[in-house]
Design a protein around this nucleic acid. Structure first.
Lengths: 238, 238
DNA sequence: CGTGCCAGGTGCCAT
DNA sequence: ATGGCACTTGGCACG
């Protein structure tokens, strides 16, 4: 239709059947769903329950519309990886097409990146007289989040995580081990909001350390940043 | 409204502002979005571009509706983890409320589970005279996908992945190492559709092996399964 | 209920 | 393009 060519939004509640073939394959039998076709080529299909979409196709896509056996057939093709989404529509309950403009900015806040910013601004969150030397550094075994020096000048690798799980602990060990193997002295600290059971023990056994940072500590630091002050307005930080 | 109490679907295109606070925090400034409130309590907010939702709240939720400063205010609360989504609505473009029923079945096909089924049915995909002994087994370091025996009766741990990346290789090594450390003889094979660069080398260095399975091999095996025949009808498997 | 692991993960940014 | 890694990841299976 014209709506697709003019990159409008198309929203349907319709009785449809959906097939997907690409990295995997799936088939969704007849039923009523919400089909969302966006101006950028994205297609999202929601069932009436569940927070996640049942089928989708990320842009860029090419969309073909035709009629087959009396059904409206919409084929959404993605090139790389090669994926095809086919929607067969038996009837349309509700249809909306139109231009929807949205220029509102979106701020995400307090993810790993913000934890890092807080530590960069206040290295004492790690410990007294701690200094950050590098932000993101390639080491044997991967890329460590921060490298610092403690008050005795000992090199320290810092790995940041929202949740300190076993995988994170192993990751840190992977960074520290080669250095120690080569005779280097290095500390390794896993920083997280929360630690799963067994992780602290694993760290201890392997000569590593941890810091539990509290959400409100980080928030109170970040909210001082002028850049984010407007963002914070309206939030009552508990 | 009544629509929420009666667990109906509510779909709006509206000019709104959204705040999220919970595991992280986010703020979305005024603009036009598609707001989807489902009968099970799920709430999904889409912008007019992008395949992913900008904000959401998974069920179970409690929904409060009120009026604040002349705006319609919808608050969606999730208990564990504690998360709050606040939607302030300035104007509504389009509104749909109603019961949407969808009983159509959904089949997903050719994920790791299907790769396993194919290998269970045809262990020769691993190698000639290979026998599967166990499906899913706890070992030191985690849970391995398959345990088998080669034609010489040597125990073999098999890890299945869609993509054989470094993480998968390390995972397999983690399963094999403790056994070898204790003097056990064991082979380790990483099975995947595709291997990232460096992974095969890493496996080789650590005395592990790999098998590259092709999609069509697995498909041709699975399509023979009666249970899935109906699913396959209509697919032209290339 | 937490813990681990997969996903058509998606997205972002590095080389 | 490929790889590495975080994510309000969500989801499921399992101890």
């Amino acid at each position: 239709m014209d709506a697709i060519r003019s990159h409008h939004l198309i929203l349907m509640i319709c009785d449809c059947r959906v097939e997907y073939e690409g990295r995997a394959s799936s088939k969704l039998m007849w039923g009523r769903r919400i089909v969302l076709m966006k101006g950028d080529g994205s297609v999202v299909i929601h069932r009436p329950v569940g927070v996640e979409a049942v089928n989708w196709q990320p842009p860029p896509t090419v969309i073909h519309i035709s009629s087959e056996d009396g059904y409206l057939k919409i084929v959404v093709v993605r090139r790389r990886p090669k994926e095809v989404l086919r929607i067969y529509i038996r009837s349309i309950d509700t249809l909306y097409t139109g231009k929807v403009r949205d220029s509102g900015e979106f701020y995400m806040y307090f993810d790993e990146e913000d934890l890092k910013k807080a530590i960069l601004a206040h290295p004492e969150l790690i410990e007294e007289n701690f200094r950050i030397i590098r932000d993101e550094m390639e080491v044997e075994g991967g890329r460590v989040d921060l490298v610092g020096e403690d008050e005795n000048g000992m090199k320290t690798l810092v790995e940041l995580k929202k949740v300190g799980n076993m995988e994170a602990a192993r990751q840190l060990l992977r960074y520290v081990s080669p250095i120690r193997r080569d005779g280097g002295k290095v500390r390794g600290i896993l920083v997280a909001e929360k630690f799963n059971s067994g992780v602290k023990k694993f760290l201890k056994i392997n000569g590593l350390e941890w810091r539990e940072v509290r959400r409100h500590q980080v928030l109170s630091i970040i909210r001082k940043s002028r850049k984010l002050r407007r963002f914070m307005e309206g939030f009552k930080v508990e």
